[in-house]
Amino acid sequence: MTESDIAAALTEARTIAVVGLSPREDRPSWGVARYLKSQGYRIIPVNPGQAGKLLLDELVYPNLAAIPREAEVDMVDIFRRSEAVPALVDEALAALPALRTIWMQLGITSPVAAEKARAAGVRVIEDRCPKIELPRLQSGLHSV
């Protein structure tokens, strides 16, 4: 993962599936999703315990496979433990034809899943937060 990978991910993304989005406003997933939405990204919440409800004015899906293909999800932002990532990457690769980036939040890594995604032509960002990286990118504090 390079600075140019981060810049490309955030510049190219339009629709982001946020896996593990919590309905609780004090949770990092909610704050990050709200911020991304405020920056013009479409957010698609994924949380089986909240499926069918609305979070941030968007319908919550139980899993990635349930998201309609016409949603054209191009990035998946993962707020789940590292152990859950391989299955999520498998599901994302199978269900999301427009997928360009797998993003794993701070503290989340999965070398095996990352390699599988990269082998399928998908960019992978690990152990980073778009709410931190986007302002840094916008302020020019990066080298691409």
Results as ranks from 00 to 15, higher is better:
Ser38Leu: 14
Pro62Ser: 11
Val124Gly: 09
Lys131Phe: 10
Val124Cys: 09
Ala66Gly: 01
Ile132Arg: 09
Leu88Phe: 09
Glu83Thr: 02
Val89Arg: 11
Ala119Tyr: 03
Pro68Asp: 00
Met75Val: 02
Glu25Phe: 10
Tyr61Leu: 12
Arg100Val: 06
Arg81His: 07
Arg123Met: 06
Leu141Tyr: 12
Leu55Glu: 06
Met75Lys: 00
Ala84Ser: 10
Leu134Asn: 03
Arg34Tyr: 13
Glu25Pro: 13
Lys131His: 06
Gly52Ser: 00
Ser29Val: 11
Val18Tyr: 06
Cys129Met: 02
Gln39Asp: 12
Ser38Arg: 10
Val76Tyr: 13
Ala84Leu: 05
Ile102Cys: 08
Pro23Gln: 10
Ala94Lys: 11
Pro111Gln: 04
Ile43Met: 09
Ala98Gly: 08
Ile67Glu: 01
Arg118Ser: 06
Ala92His: 04
Pro68Trp: 03
Tyr35Asn: 15
Trp103Ala: 05
Glu115Asp: 05
Arg81Pro: 09
Arg81Cys: 05
Ala92Arg: 00
Tyr41Asp: 02
Ile102Leu: 09
Val32Ala: 15
Ala51Arg: 01
Val73Asp: 05
Tyr41Gln: 07
Arg34Gln: 15
Trp103Gln: 02
Arg118Pro: 00
Ala94Met: 06
Pro23Gly: 13
Asp77Val: 08
Lys37Ala: 15
Val32Lys: 15
Glu72Thr: 07
Leu56Ser: 10
Ile43Leu: 03
Ile78Pro: 01
Val124Trp: 11
Ala95His: 01
Leu64Ile: 02
Ala120Glu: 07
Ala119Ser: 06
Pro62Leu: 02
Arg34Lys: 15
Arg136Ile: 06
Val46His: 02
Ser82Asp: 11
Asp90Ser: 07
Ile43Asp: 08
Gly121Ser: 03
Arg27Gln: 12
Gln50Glu: 14
Thr109Val: 13
Ala117Asn: 04
Arg123Gly: 11
Pro28Glu: 09
Arg80Ile: 08
Leu137Phe: 14
Val18Leu: 08
Asp90Arg: 08
Met104Val: 06
Val122Glu: 09
Tyr61Ala: 09
Leu96Arg: 04
Asp127Phe: 02
Lys116Val: 03
Pro23Trp: 06
Asp127Arg: 01
Ser139Ala: 15
Gly121Pro: 05
Pro48Phe: 05
Leu59Asp: 08
Ser82Gln: 08
Ile44Ala: 13
Ala114Gln: 02
Gly140Ser: 14
Glu25Gly: 12
Ala98Leu: 09
Ile125Ser: 07
Ala84Lys: 04
Gln39Asn: 13
Gln39Ser: 14
Leu54Trp: 03
Phe79Asn: 06
Leu93Ile: 03
Gly107Asp: 09
Glu72Cys: 10
Val46Asn: 00
Arg34Val: 12
Arg136Pro: 00
Ile102Ser: 05
Leu54Asp: 14
Thr109Ala: 09
Ala94Ile: 03
Arg81Met: 11
Lys37Gly: 15
Val32His: 14
Ile78Gln: 07
Ala33Lys: 01
Ala66Asn: 00
Cys129Lys: 05
Leu134Arg: 00
Ala120Ile: 05
Glu25Trp: 11
Ala98Cys: 13
Val32Arg: 15
Pro68Gln: 00
